[in-house]
């Protein structure tokens, strides 16, 4: 996983969750980030798919509940 990919993921999540990219860490997760609700979750998924030209299955979408999971899911697809 290159730094560049992680930076892009951070930027996307930061834009959608209204945070600084630096505030997105491996600890950032749905259950400790108020803005990360189900609608924003879909927005993050769609933005990632758009950014990396990938497509997730619903099982993957449901599994990415933290920044760590998101990075794993993206890495598995690119």
């Amino acid at each position: 996983m290159s730094d560049d990919v992680e930076q892009r993921i951070q930027q996307i999540m930061a834009d959608i969750l209204h945070l600084e990219p630096q505030q997105i860490s491996e600890q950032t997760a749905m259950d400790n980030t108020e803005a990360w609700d189900s609608a924003n979750h879909i927005s993050i998924v769609l933005a990632l798919e758009d950014e990396f030209s990938i497509s997730f299955d619903v099982v993957e979408i449901e599994a990415m509940t933290s920044y760590f999971d998101v990075v794993q899911a993206v890495a598995a697809r690119i």
Partner: peptide, 11 residues
């Protein structure tokens, strides 16, 4: 192009 720029511009 794409969603994240749209989101930025909306904000």
């Amino acid at each position: 192009p794409g969603r994240r720029t749209h989101r930025f511009l909306r904000d």
